[in-house]
């Protein structure tokens, strides 16, 4: 059986990122857009960890540190974005991004 190397993990990360990108751009529900963003974060984090494991480096654990900060910022982003979703729902009774047209002229 073939061995598993860096390219395999990069492909999984790329596919996760692409699915997240598609959801972020195409979904009408605001929560669906946020789910897409979380999937993109996961694809990027997986890529960081695979490089950290496989690629030659003086300090290979820096990739892990970067992932910890990405997760921290993702948590802060999720809290604020979901608060915005609830606020928008209270104002307009919808979280459909196609109907968020307050700034349109």
């Amino acid at each position: 059986m073939d061995s598993v190397n860096l390219e395999h993990f990069l492909v999984v990360g790329a596919v996760l990122f692409a699915i997240g990108l598609y959801m972020t751009l195409a979904k009408r529900n605001f929560v669906g857009v946020l789910i897409g963003i979380e999937l993109m974060f996961n694809g990027v984090n997986l890529t960081f960890i695979s490089f950290s494991r496989f690629v030659e480096s003086a300090e290979p654990l820096n990739g892990h540190i970067f992932v910890i900060f990405v997760i921290t910022v993702a948590a802060a982003e999720a809290a604020v974005a979901l608060a915005l979703a609830v606020l928008l729902y209270n104002l307009r009774d919808t979280i459909d991004v196609d109907r968020m047209d307050l700034l349109k002229w």
Partner: peptide
């Protein structure tokens, strides 16, 4: 917390361009 907003996970009018862009990026 957004019960009347609907739980449908459907795509908007950007469905096809988003699919093409995601495929190109991947």
């Amino acid at each position: 917390l957004t019960p009347r907003a609907g739980r449908l996970n459907q795509e908007g009018f950007m469905f096809l361009p988003a699919l093409v862009l995601a495929a190109l990026v991947a």
